[in-house]
């Protein structure tokens, strides 16, 4: 087991996942539903960034442009779908988001087909670092993600929009009474979560491949990160993403033979990798139903 390598992989995973989990938790705290289509926003972001770069745009222009476009798409989706059922019970919104997820994924499939794409045609340069390997792409992903999260932190704590968002999450009736233009804020929030998810998706695509499964493959880990951090807490979601990233990489790498009643090396079958995030989430839900960090809302 190479600890440095595990840490590097976990950090990179967390920085991608955090950008997506953040939106899940924000939508939940403001609009009170778990958005099952959130993974597809990441999917759209990755495909748009790919399409723009394939059209000749520089990658560092294609990814932000794709993110901004996805932000607008998220706002449009809200206006076309979620705004019409704003007051409906949570379970109706859940079903709507499930239908939306199927719709978005297959629109992407109809446009780009089911084969997958990659940004680069060559290998990323990788260098050895404290006993592990890290690629230039991974360093870039880490930096971009940290800057994006920092920006969001500043927005939440130091701007009028951030204050309005927090007020809205705490009590939408009260916020309305205090003259906050709720619908305008909601639109801005959708723009932000849409572009952040898109950025996360594009970064995943940058490091690995862009395929139609991208959305579904991040949604459970993103939910798990949000639940871990305490639904409603953006900072919690980011921490949750880090824990999920670590769990996904450590659980499979550990030799569990130190447990009693085992003989010989005992590894968890890699076939269960996709279940790790979910099982961590279930364990947390049983032990600490309000999340590890007792998140309230929008803090």
């Amino acid at each position: 087991m190479n600890l440095t390598q595990i840490l590097i992989n976990s950090l990179v995973r967390a920085s991608e996942l955090g950008l997506i989990a953040m939106g899940v938790t924000l939508v939940f705290s403001l609009l009170r539903f778990a958005n099952f289509a959130h993974g597809e926003l990441a999917l759209i972001g990755a495909y748009l960034a790919y399409a723009l770069s394939a059209a000749g745009l520089d990658l560092w222009l294609a990814i932000p442009l794709g993110a901004v476009a996805t932000g607008f798409i998220a706002v449009a989706i809200d206006k076309a779908l979620f705004a019409r059922v704003r007051t409906a019970p949570g379970l109706v919104l859940l079903v709507a988001s499930m239908g939306l997820s199927l719709f978005l994924k297959n629109v992407v499939g109809a446009i780009w087909g089911t084969k997958s794409y990659s940004f680069e045609g060559s290998l990323a340069r990788s260098f050895s670092f404290a006993g592990g390997f890290v690629t230039s792409t991974q360093v870039i992903i880490l930096v971009v993600s940290v800057i994006a999260m920092l920006c969001f932190h500043l927005l939440l704590s130091h701007t009028r929009l951030g204050r309005a968002m927090r007020a809205l999450a705490d009590d939408s009736e009260l916020a309305r009474a205090r003259g906050i233009r709720v619908e305008a804020i909601i639109s801005k929030v959708w723009f932000i979560v849409g572009s952040y998810a898109a950025l996360g998706g594009a970064l995943i695509g940058l490091e690995t491949v862009i395929s139609l499964e991208l959305g579904y493959s991040v949604i459970l880990p993103a939910f798990a990160a949000a639940v871990l951090g305490g639904i409603g807490s953006v900072h919690g979601a980011m921490l949750g993403a880090l824990i999920i990233g670590l769990a996904e990489n450590i659980v499979l790498a550990i030799d569990w033979s130190f447990l009693p009643a085992t003989s010989g090396p005992l590894y968890i079958d890699t076939g269960y990798k996709l279940a790790v995030a979910f099982l961590v989430m279930v364990a947390v839900l049983i032990l600490r139903p309000r999340g590890l960090f007792q998140g309230t809302s929008g803090d």
Binding site: E207, E213, L214, N249, A253, K273
Partner: peptide
């Protein structure tokens, strides 16, 4: 002996196990 799920975007954990 390692199994991976086809179509996933990341196989680093599987590769680490394979080569360990």
């Amino acid at each position: 002996e390692v199994r991976y799920e086809a179509g996933q975007p990341d196989y680093r954990a599987e590769l680490q196990r394979l080569f360990s």
